[in-house]
C-alpha cells in the first residue's frame, strides 16, 4: 500500500472503478452506448500506470496531471467531464488542504467546470446529480464531512432513477430513460465512497 495520501486516494479510486467496470457498463447499456465502464477503466488504468509520478507531485499538480490523463485516455464524454473536474480542482487546490473550507472551494471549482463542460446542471440525470449534493452536504456538515458526503452521494444517485435524461446519449430515449440509474452518477458515487473511506482512515 502506498504511504502518502495521494497514493492511497489514487489506489482506492482506481480499484473501485476497476471492480465496478462491468456494473457501469451494464447501467450504460440500458440508457447509453454501453461504454462507460470500459472507458472509465481505461482512464483509471492510465492513472494507475502513472501512479509513481503522480505520487511525487503536490496536490494541485497531481490533480491536473490526473485530469489530463483522463481526458487523453477515457475516449468518451466522461473523459473531458471527469478530466475537467480534476483539472479545475487542481487549479483551485492548495498544497495541503487543512480544513473543510479548502476542500469545498476546490470541489466547487471542479463542479462548476463539469457544469460548463457538459452545459448541464442538477436534474438532468448526470454525474452532477451526485456531485452537487455532495458539495452542499460537505459545506453544511463540516464536523462530519465524509458521512454527509456518502449519504448525499447515495441519495443523489438514487434520485437519478426517476429522472428523465436531457443530456448525452440517454436523452434520445426520452421517457424511456426513466427507471434506470445514471451510469455517470454511479461512477461519481463510487469515487466519493472510495475517497471518503481513505480520508476517514487517515
Amino acid at each position: 500500500m502506498s504511504s502518502n495520501l495521494n497514493g492511497r486516494l489514487l489506489e482506492a479510486t482506481c480499484q473501485t472503478i476497476s471492480e465496478h467496470a462491468d456494473e457501469l457498463t451494464r447501467l450504460d447499456q440500458a440508457i447509453g452506448d454501453g461504454d462507460h465502464g470500459i472507458n472509465m477503466k481505461r482512464g483509471f488504468d492510465a492513472l494507475a500506470a502513472a501512479a509513481e509520478e503522480l505520487q511525487q507531485l503536490d496536490l494541485p499538480s497531481a490533480l491536473q496531471k490526473a485530469g489530463m490523463l483522463l481526458v487523453m485516455n477515457v475516449g468518451g464524454a466522461s473523459g473531458p467531464l471527469y478530466g475537467s473536474l480534476l483539472m479545475a480542482m487542481g487549479k483551485a487546490a492548495v498544497d495541503t488542504p487543512s480544513c473543510v473550507d479548502d476542500v469545498v472551494s476546490m470541489l466547487r471549482a471542479g463542479v462548476d467546470a463539469v457544469k460548463a463542460r457538459g452545459k448541464s446542471d442538477v436534474g438532468a440525470k448526470t454525474m452532477l446529480d451526485v456531485l452537487v449534493p455532495v458539495l452542499e452536504a460537505i459545506e453544511k456538515n463540516p464536523a462530519s464531512p465524509c458521512a454527509a458526503a456518502r449519504q448525499a452521494a447515495d441519495m443523489g444517485l438514487e434520485a437519478t432513477r426517476a429522472m428523465q435524461a436531457t443530456k448525452g446519449r440517454a436523452s434520445f430515449l426520452g421517457e424511456r430513460s426513466i427507471g434506470h440509474l445514471d451510469p455517470g452518477a454511479r461512477s461519481s458515487a463510487l469515487l466519493v465512497h472510495a475517497i471518503c473511506n481513505v480520508l476517514e482512515d487517515s
Binding site: D35, R42, V71, M72, G75, G79
Partner: peptide, 12 residues
C-alpha cells in the same frame, strides 16, 4: 475511435 481503437473519440 477511442484510444484503444474501438468506437469512441479521442482528444489526442
Amino acid at each position: 475511435g477511442n484510444p484503444d481503437g474501438g468506437l469512441g473519440t479521442n482528444v489526442g
